[in-house]
Simulated assay, not measured.
Amino acid sequence: MKEKIIVIVGPTAVGKTSLGIQLAKALDGEVINGDSMQVYKQLDIGTAKVTEEEAKGITHHLIDIKQPDEPYTVADFKADATKKIKDISSRGKVPIVVGGTGLYIESLLYNVSHGGKAEPNDQFREEMQQIVDEQGRDYLHQLLREKDSSAADSIHKNNVRRVIRALEVIHETGELFSDFQSERQLEPVFDAFIIGLTTDRDVLYKRINERVENMIDNGLVDEAKLLYHTVPKDSQSTKGIGYKEFFPYFETKQEWDETVALVKQHSRNYAKRQLTWFRNRFDVDLWVDLVADSKQLEEVIEIGRKHLESD
């Protein structure tokens, strides 16, 4: 029998954390983090990490499990989250996976490795980064297109880390990165009920802008400084939106207003990509707009309960 789980996905600033807690309270569940940045200790504000007060006693897993200079891969998440699901289920509680990192959720639900069989090759990555520095992102993306056009079609040129990873997989395994993408199982590994949160685009963008302002007021810049001064610049944690935009500001290469505007812009762009990802690659069982109508919460809880009780 597949373990029954609930999964909450959607763009940033749409209320995933809150819904996860409310469902966990109503259905006797525990939350498993599905956000790639919340695994890092000390990065609380910029990752919108749940506070003890917000958690209301609900147990949250896979938060604060890595130092900012440590890597954490899709394969790591897949293995860790699978263990947590089995543990939570064995104790008679409901695993509730909450997050906006599409690669993480897809790897967990559909057993996709995303090239996880290829070990990291630091020398190769440095060589590729040097190509970017000297010849630009377009040139690197063209290299990928020549080797694997399908992968190039699916990875934006600005996602340099992902382009390098695709090239690295090809280099290390001799197989196309896109072949790993096509290994996705048709049926989810778990008996998952997937809830997608969404809202009107203008409303969402306003919420994102306000969230950025609140993060700055609450100490986001201090977290960015911590990364800038203590963590190697090629670390995964330094690539997070809300942190990397401040680095040119610290180097006096960028004005404050431009920096804040970039954080907001990149956050909005990310939210758009998240929505596209979840709409195109996931069989979401229920799309709901709790921002516009919070009264739908009771209906969402009831639908979730029916899923858990179904054969």
Rank of each mutant, 00 (worst) to 15 (best):
M1H: 13
I5L: 05
V7S: 00
V7A: 04
V7N: 02
T12Q: 06
T17P: 06
L19F: 14
Q22F: 14
A24T: 12
L27A: 15
G29H: 11
V31D: 03
D35W: 01
Q38S: 05
G46M: 06
V50F: 03
T59M: 10
T59A: 02
L62C: 06
E70L: 08
P71Y: 04
D76S: 12
A79S: 12
D80L: 02
K86R: 14
K86T: 13
S90I: 11
S90T: 11
R91A: 04
G92C: 09
K93M: 10
V94P: 09
I96P: 03
V98R: 04
G102E: 06
G102M: 08
E106Y: 05
E106K: 15
S107W: 04
S107P: 00
L108Y: 00
V112A: 00
S113H: 06
H114C: 09
G116M: 06
G116V: 05
E119D: 13
P120C: 09
Q123D: 15
F124S: 07
R125W: 09
E127R: 15
M128I: 08
Q129A: 01
Q130F: 08
I131E: 04
D138F: 10
L140M: 14
A151S: 12
N158H: 03
V160C: 01
R162C: 00
R162A: 00
R165E: 03
V169K: 01
V169S: 01
H171S: 13
E172A: 12
G174T: 04
L176W: 00
L176P: 00
S182E: 14
Q185G: 09
L186C: 09
D191R: 14
I194S: 02
G196Y: 02
G196S: 03
L197C: 13
L197G: 09
T199N: 05
R201I: 13
R201A: 10
V203R: 13
V203N: 07
N209Y: 03
E210Q: 15
R211T: 12
E213H: 09
N214V: 10
I216R: 06
I216Q: 08
D217G: 07
G219L: 10
G219I: 12
D222A: 14
K225T: 08
Y228P: 08
K233D: 12
K233E: 15
S235D: 04
Q236P: 04
Q236N: 11
S237M: 01
S237E: 02
T238E: 05
F246K: 05
T252S: 14
K253M: 04
E255W: 07
E255Q: 13
D257F: 05
K264G: 12
H266K: 10
L275T: 13
L275S: 06
T276Q: 13
W277F: 14
F278W: 07
R279W: 05
R279Y: 07
D283T: 13
D283H: 13
V284E: 05
D285Y: 04
W287R: 10
D289P: 03
D293R: 04
L297H: 02
I301N: 01
E302S: 12
G304C: 15
H307F: 06
